[in-house]
């Protein structure tokens, strides 16, 4: 091999290496590229877009679906699906409002009533997740059907609790609870801190722990996992419990925002969460997933609505179409870079 050839070969190798890193970068960063494009479009359409209060509006708005989508990532990675999250959030919100109102009425201190309501909300979330998990593992019913069933149950229960109307937090208690959603720490609203914490914990749990590895193993091949002494059912149930916890946590932040819950609370959150997870690069069939991707997905979904509200360029009748195109675009970006 003469020197010219060897130089050419090494150059080829280098180019190959560059392409590989580029591909890897695109694969990893697909959803981020979509997010960045949206931010640029938003700023072009409205100079107020990157103002701090709009940024915090978008981030706090993403907190509900964002937190839920972290839980959904675990459920989907283990090869299951949870359609009940929106209805579960509505039910927990309704229950919390009733409990807090009653306890405050009976002379329990407002703070104490709120804390008790929060604890009950979290417990109900954990139990609901456990129920979904047990029905779909020990009950041997497909999780799609299980959660379709529990979705109907939760949705009806909140309608029943509200007597077909709206449950409203007592106005004085609401004043005490309000800061949980509206206050900031270091200029960043509390829901955004909670979202960040959930993402951090979720990311560590999925990538750095044995539980996370087992989740991925169960999702990619349940049978092999079973023979590798992984307790498949247990992992699946825990994934549902994580989901239930995330839903309850999101609801704790949702209740102080408007202080009310009705049958229209959380409608379609399940589809938004699933869309966020998939746009973020998690395979719907399970086996692999990215927690941070799900958050980027949730941000993309919120940004679409925000940008459409900030401009009158596009007919309001076409809002749904714009959303559809952006979701498909983001998914495509993620997919093509993935196969490379």
């Amino acid at each position: 091999m003469n020197s010219a050839e060897s130089i050419e070969a090494s150059a080829r190798e280098q180019r190959g290496f560059e392409l590989k890193t580029l591909g890897r970068w695109a694969r990893e960063g697909g959803p981020l590229i979509a997010l960045l494009l949206l931010i640029i479009i938003g700023q072009i359409l409205n100079p107020n877009f990157l103002r701090w209060d709009n940024v915090t509006n978008v981030l706090t708005r993403s907190a509900f679906v964002g937190i839920i989508s972290v839980g959904a990532t675990f459920v989907i990675v283990t090869g299951q699906i949870d359609l009940s999250v929106g209805a579960m959030a509505a039910f927990i919100a309704g229950l919390m409002i009733i409990v807090i109102n009653r306890l405050a009425e009976f002379g329990l201190g407002q703070e104490l009533a709120i804390v008790a309501g929060m604890v009950i909300g979290l417990v109900v979330g954990l139990i609901s997740g456990l129920a979904n998990g047990i029905l779909s593992t020990i009950g041997k019913i497909d999780s799609f059907i299980v959660t379709l069933g529990t979705m109907g149950i939760f949705r009806s229960l909140v309608t029943f609790l509200a007597n077909g109307g709206t449950l409203t937090l007592d106005s004085r208690v609401r004043e005490t609870y309000r800061p949980v959603f509206y206050d900031s720490w270091l200029y960043v609203p509390i829901p955004v801190w909670v979202l960040a914490a959930v993402v951090a914990v979720g990311w560590v749990a999925l990538t750095k722990t044995r539980f996370g590895r087992y989740c991925r193993a169960v999702g990619s091949n349940a049978e092999v996992s079973h023979y590798s002494a992984i307790r498949v059912n247990r992992i699946r149930v825990v994934a549902f419990i994580v989901q239930g916890f995330c839903v309850a946590l999101a609801t704790l932040l949702y209740v102080p925002r408007l202080g009310s819950a009705s049958s229209s609370t959380g409608v379609l959150w399940e589809l938004e969460a699933i869309t966020a997870v998939v746009v973020g690069g998690t395979a719907l069939r399970g086996g692999s997933g990215r927690v941070w991707g799900s958050i980027v997905g949730a941000l993309i979904l919120t940004l679409i609505g925000n940008i459409l509200n900030l401009t009158s360029l596009i007919s309001v009748y076409l809002n749904g179409a714009v959303q559809g195109i952006i979701i498909l675009g983001a998914a495509l970006l993620q997919r093509t870079s993935r196969t490379r």
Partner: peptide, 22 residues
């Protein structure tokens, strides 16, 4: 401007936030 808020509180809140920004 006029936007759809789908006859519910959550969307009323969001749309108004964005109107206030704008």
């Amino acid at each position: 401007d006029s936007k759809y808020a789908n006859w519910n509180r959550d969307d009323g809140f969001k749309v108004m936030q964005d109107f206030l920004t704008r």
